[in-house]
Design a binder for these strands. Sequence first.
DNA 1: TTCACAAAATGACCATGGTCAATAAATATT
DNA 2: AATATTTATTGACCATGGTCATTTTGTGAA
Lengths: 194, 194
Amino acid sequence: MKRPIQKRSLATRAKLIASAQKILTSKDFGALRVEEVVLNAGVAKGTFFAHFPDKDALMERVVSDEINAHLDRIEKQPPPTNLDSLLRQFMPLLQFMTSERYVFDLILRHSGAAAKEEIGPIAQTFGRQIGVLTKWISVGPFRKDVPALILAEGVQAFAIQSMALDFCAINSEMPMHARLRSYLEPWLRPDTLS
Amino acid sequence: MKRPIQKRSLATRAKLIASAQKILTSKDFGALRVEEVVLNAGVAKGTFFAHFPDKDALMERVVSDEINAHLDRIEKQPPPTNLDSLLRQFMPLLQFMTSERYVFDLILRHSGAAAKEEIGPIAQTFGRQIGVLTKWISVGPFRKDVPALILAEGVQAFAIQSMALDFCAINSEMPMHARLRSYLEPWLRPDTLS
DNA sequence: TTCACAAAATGACCATGGTCAATAAATATT
DNA sequence: AATATTTATTGACCATGGTCATTTTGTGAA
């Protein structure tokens, strides 16, 4: 017979997440160890894996919380009236995503839902991003000959490309936002160019 | 006083690579174990890490060899005269890149050179890709209002986006090449749209 | 209250990538 | 040839993520 989830279990999960967040105030994401999380939370290692399928799942949870906070802020703003303000509103989020190589790789790995499985928290934030971008693009001064959804997906692709190149030694003379702008101008406003 | 690398060392490295390649004829990339590689090559585990900084480095080597073979073929072809033949010529490469989740993640992780370090073999193949694309785009029937290099980088960004979405359960009803085409039409030929 | 049983937690154990002090094998110097 | 010095190899050992049979705890039924 099925029984509901005990509140003890919810408390344990909360302890694990809180423990991770506490550790992350003084350590990089990449330096976080499962061992440390469970020690700090006062539970056994096996308990961790009863709550999260793997370490990535916890990191996903923490990182997606951060991304969602950015998206909350972004969604509160009025739609941008030009490309530069669109860029400006998204930059803090991109900044976070590239704050650490580990974080960027984690996000990349989970930006699409894994095949045939349930959509993960990071993939969900990508869905939200597409939502905001689609709306903003459709009401803003941007090209109308292409569906706003396609344009939004393109912006996402260019953002990822810009972030990836930002980690690259060769291309580091150009700041990320400038690179992104050089893609988005011809993508979103091809008619304004000679 | 410095001495040249011994041929014994080169032989060992070759044995390791050959061993990996042999194993990969009957196993997925993701299932390859360092233990198995050294056993098969008849050397100790420590020897492996004297030749490769980590497992990724070997995988990079093997995967980049494969990519370079594709690029050799691609570079032999005449420049495409339209978008569809451009796509067709690149599809086998993209197919290989998405043949396995492990391979795609590896490629993503190493597509940009790691900061301040030497450029890796996979990053080099991305450089080659940009080279071919830039040339093809500049001589083909594509927009001229944007530098061909920027357009080429955009194609790469869209290719990655298409591959990533191809792994995604939600979006899998649309084949990769069709998705990529829907991005590239407005990116490379914005004037042909209404 | 007691019992039965499902949910939760435990920690010894495993798998695998990676390290390093010690050793062996080349090569240069005498 | 004997010795010194640098390069290459070795394998015991470590770090860390992850598993699972066993035990503990909570809860509904009697």
